[in-house]
Lab assay of single mutants.
Amino acid sequence: HNLTITQGKLFFHYNPKLCLSEIHKMEEVSGTKGRQERNDIALKTNGDQASCENELLKFSYIRTSFDKILLRWEPYWPPDFRDLLGFMLFYKEAPYQNVTEFDGQDACGSNSWTVVDIDPPLRSNDPKSQNHPGWLMRGLKPWTQYAIFVKTLVTFSDERRTYGAKSDIIYVQTDATNPSVPLDPISVSNSSSQIILKWKPPSDPNGNITHYLVFWERQAEDSELFELDYCLKGLKLPSRTWSPPFESEDSQKHNQSEYEDSAGECCSCPKTDSQILKELEESSFRKTFEDYLHNVVFVPRKTSSGTGAEDPRPSRKRRSLGDVGNVTVAVPTVAAFPNTSSTSVPTSPEEHRPFEKVVNKESLVISGLRHFTGYRIELQACNQDTPEERCSVAAYVSARTMPEAKADDIVGPVTHEIFENNVVHLMWQEPKEPNGLIVLYEVSYRRYGDEELHLCVSRKHFALERGCRLRGLSPGNYSVRIRATSLAGNGSWTEPTYFYVTDYLDVPSNIA
C-alpha cells in the first residue's frame, strides 16, 4: 500500500525493539523526510534493546553428524571492536523451508527459537588472519532439518551509529543413524509349514526405512522333555500350542467401542483428552525405555581390526524358502538304536541362519518350516543398504507352526516275539517326523474274553527296548493296539495285532 503524509511529521519514542533503520525507511515511504526535528525521533529510546544489523554474515563451514552440527561463519568486528559482546545463534526444527525470524513471537518477546549466546573469538592483530567464530550444536535429532541463523550482539553506541551483522536463515539436516526397533511384532501360524509375521514401523526411523531383515531359527525343545518319565503317576503330560491366527481386521481397528449394538453396526467412541494424553505418555515412556535398553543392555560386537582377528559373527547367506525346513542338525536320541526319531534339535552355532529381506511392506510369510516346531524370529529395521547396512537392534518374537495331521501315527506293522515265561516283546517304529517329539506310547492289549488293559511306555523305555515287553501273560489269544502321544496330543491307534500265548508248562520236552 502507498502511504503519503502531505502535512505533519513523524514522532517515535520509547520503541526499544524498533531499529532506527526501520524508522528511516518509514520517513522515505511516507514522504516526511526532512520535516522531523532532532528530538522527534529519539536516538536513545528507539532500538536500544534490539540488534540492528546492516551487514550480512556468511557461514564459512558446515559439518553434520547424526546428532551434531558444527558451524563456522566469517569474522565480524565493528569499528570499535570492544562493542562486540558476542553472537546469538538461533535454531529450531523446520520440516519445511518457510521459516521466518519472527515465527511464534508474542507480545512478551518470546519466540519459538532456541538461542545460544556465543563469546567472540580472540581478536588477531592481523586483519587478514582473524579467527572464524563458530559453535557445535549438540543433542539434535537424527535425520531432522533445522533452520539456523546467527547475528551479532553489540553494545549501545553513544554516537548512535547503527552497526551489526546478521546471516540469512539456512537449512541444515542432520545425518541418518540406526533406527529404533520395529514396533509390535506379531507372529502367527496359518499352516503346519508357515508363519505369518506382521509389525509396525519404528517410532524413530532416523532416516528413510529402506528394508527390513527377518531372521528365523528353529528352537530346540526343553531338555526336561527328553529326561522326564511322563508315565509316572502324578506327572502331567506336557503340551505345546501353536500360535493362533490373526483376529479379523475389524476387531483390530483402534479407537473402536468394545460393545456392539445388537441391531447392527455401531460407531466408534472418540477417545477423551485424558485417554489420548495417557497414550502419549505411555508411548514416550516406551521410547525412553527402549533407548535405555539399547544403550545399557546391548553391547556392540567388536569388529575385526587390522591384526587379522576374525569377526566372530557368522556370515549372512541367503537361502531359498524351500530350504528352511531342514535348518537344524538332527541327532538321534540314543545312538545305539537307529530307529528312534531325530527330534532332539541342538543347533550348531556355526550354522548360517536363513533370512529374508523385506522391502516396502511390514509383513512376511515364512514358508518351508517344520510342522509343530518353535521358531525364534528376529526382526531388524534398516535405513541404508549400501555401502553397508545400517540397521536397528533386533526385536524378537516366537511362534510355533501348526501340527501336521497323521504325523504322530505309527507307520509300519507292530511285530512281536514270544519268549519263555510268557513274555512277549512288542516292537514298532517311532514316527519319523512327529509333531514336536514323542513323549510316550500307549499300549492297549486284551486277552479274548477279558477286559482291555493299558500300559504306558516312556520315551526312554522305548529307546532301550525298541518297544516294550509284556510279562506274566496268561495263555490265550491276544490283540494289541499302540498309539503315540506327542507334544500336540495323541496320534491314531494302530491296526490290531494278534498273537497267541501258550502255557509254557505244557511245552513238550526233548528229553527222552
Rank of each mutant, 00 (worst) to 15 (best):
S203W: 05
P205D: 15
I209Y: 03
I209L: 12
H211M: 02
Y212V: 11
F215D: 10
W216S: 03
Q219D: 08
Q219N: 08
S223K: 11
L225R: 09
F226Y: 09
F226W: 04
E227F: 09
D229F: 12
D229L: 07
D229Y: 14
Y230C: 09
C231I: 02
L232Q: 13
K236L: 10
P238T: 09
S239N: 08
S239L: 14
T241W: 03
S243A: 13
P244I: 12
E247G: 07
E247Y: 13
D250W: 06
Q252G: 13
Q256R: 06
S257I: 03
G264D: 15
C266G: 14
C267F: 13
C267W: 01
C267E: 13
C269A: 08
C269Q: 04
C269F: 14
P270L: 04
T272Y: 12
T272D: 11
S274V: 06
S274T: 08
Q275M: 11
I276W: 07
I276Y: 11
E279A: 06
E281M: 09
S283G: 10
S283N: 05
R286I: 03
R286H: 07
K287D: 07
V296L: 06
F298Q: 15
P300C: 08
P300T: 13
R301A: 07
T303Q: 13
T307L: 10
T307G: 14
G308F: 06
E310L: 14
E310N: 10
D311E: 13
D311C: 03
P312N: 06
K317E: 13
K317H: 14
R318Y: 08
R318V: 14
G322H: 06
G325W: 14
G325S: 14
N326S: 14
A336K: 11
N339A: 09
T340Q: 04
T343S: 07
T343D: 04
E351V: 08
P354T: 12
F355P: 06
K357A: 13
K361P: 08
K361V: 05
L364V: 11
V365S: 08
V365R: 13
G368P: 13
L369V: 08
F372Y: 11
T373V: 13
Y375A: 01
Y375G: 01
L379M: 07
Q380H: 14
N383M: 10
N383T: 06
Q384W: 15
D385G: 09
P387R: 06
E388P: 08
E389H: 10
E389W: 09
A394E: 08
A394I: 15
Y396M: 14
V397W: 05
A399G: 12
M402L: 10
M402Q: 15
P403A: 08
E404V: 09
E404R: 07
V411S: 15
E420Q: 12
E420W: 04
N421I: 05
V423I: 07
V424C: 08
V424E: 02
H425Q: 08
H425P: 01
W428V: 01
K432P: 13
E433R: 14
P434M: 04
P434N: 04
N435S: 04
L437N: 08
I438H: 02
L440P: 00
Y441W: 00
Y441N: 01
V443S: 00
S444A: 06
S444T: 11
Y445F: 04
Y445D: 00
Y445T: 02
R447G: 02
R447K: 05
L455P: 01
C456K: 02
C456A: 02
C456Q: 01
S458Q: 04
K460F: 07
H461A: 10
H461T: 10
F462S: 04
R469V: 09
R469E: 11
L470Y: 01
L470R: 01
R471H: 05
R471K: 11
G472M: 10
S474R: 05
S474E: 14
S474P: 08
Y478I: 01
S479K: 03
I482P: 00
T485L: 12
S486T: 10
S486W: 00
N490Y: 15
G491Q: 09
T494E: 00
T497S: 07
F499K: 00
T502K: 06
T502A: 14
D506K: 03
V507N: 15
P508V: 11
P508S: 04
S509I: 15
S509A: 08
N510I: 12
